[in-house]
């Protein structure tokens, strides 16, 4: 089977891939900080003496507590759009697979939460703080537990690398001009101001290199967990066959590089490295959704 995947992957690689772009967030943030300081300084009075340190605080990374608070708000909003599939056995099963995969990451002690949501779309979401969701539409396409592990591992990688949090960090800094709001508004308003409306941040695209990185990490995390590491590439291959104008993949294809491009990048990264690596797919243990 792997030879088949490799062949498909090779074909995808021939489709011409764009070159990697830099993702130097810190530089960007520092530039924004300098701009912010220049805005703050002319108006500085003794009562505004804390302003530069406020700007400094904006540059600092979110604490884990802040990250979880932000994540809870986004997760709650996403669940407002699509509730959980009402099947406790399914949800507990997905949590066991997800938690085992997350245990292989750099953030094993985060309070990870996994869920399958009611949506016919094919998609999955990584939310800061360790909230990971996949849609019923995607879950129904999975054929074994290794594929589920691969999909969850990609999302775990986004959380581990704080990809979405970095997007929010950027908007936090961009919002410095409106810092008066931060003084007058309550925490709820500040949070809302930061994450935007609803779960809109989940409809934003990450840098494509962040997606490729999450794919590379995803196959490794699944492999570390003992699974056949090719679960994620198999799912990508299958999703890549869905017609581009199918509404089920509209958001996924809008926010991610096409699966063929992702497979091509993965193939380049894997090369011969996994040739001696195998593992169970646990097809018989995959929890079957009731239709």
């Amino acid at each position: 089977m792997k030879m088949g995947i490799r062949y498909m992957v090779l074909l995808a690689a021939l489709c011409g891939l764009s070159t990697a772009q830099g993702f130097d967030l810190k530089q960007d943030l520092k530039k924004k900080l300098e701009e912010a300081k220049q805005k703050v300084q002319p108006a500085e009075t003794p009562s505004d003496a804390a302003a530069p340190s406020e700007a400094q605080a904006l540059l600092a990374d979110f604490s884990v507590d802040e990250e979880i608070k932000i994540g809870r708000q986004i997760a709650g909003n996403l669940l407002g759009a699509s509730p959980l599939v009402p099947d406790e056995a399914l949800q507990v099963y997905v949590n066991k697979v997800g938690r085992w995969v997350a245990s292989q990451s750099e953030r094993p002690d985060l309070a990870w939460h996994f869920g399958v949501i009611e949506s016919a779309d094919i998609n999955a979401f990584a939310i800061p703080g360790g909230y990971v969701f996949l849609t019923r539409g995607l879950y129904q396409r999975l054929r074994n537990e290794a594929e589920l592990a691969g999909v969850l591992a990609h999302e775990v990688a986004h959380v581990t690398r704080k990809h979405h949090l970095k997007i929010l960090q950027k908007s936090k800094l961009l919002d410095i001009g409106a810092k008066a709001l931060g003084r007058q508004a309550g925490e709820h308003d500040r949070l809302r101001n930061l994450i935007g409306s609803g779960a809109e941040v989940m409809a934003r695209s990450l840098d494509k290199d962040a997606e490729y990185e999450a794919d590379r990490m995803g196959v490794v995390l699944a492999g570390r967990a003992g699974y056949d590491p090719f679960g994620l590439p198999v799912v990508l291959q299958q999703v890549g066959q869905v017609k581009k104008d199918d509404t089920a993949v509209a958001l996924l294809f809008k926010t991610h590089p096409h699966p063929d491009a992702r497979l091509g990048q993965l193939d380049l990264a894997i090369g011969q490295r996994f040739d001696d690596l195998s593992g169970p797919t646990l097809e018989s243990r995959l929890y079957r959704l009731r239709p």
Partner: peptide
């Protein structure tokens, strides 16, 4: 499905 508009207007 779950489109951009639905995500934007989602309530906690």
């Amino acid at each position: 499905g779950l489109n951009e508009e639905e995500l934007k207007s989602a309530k906690f």
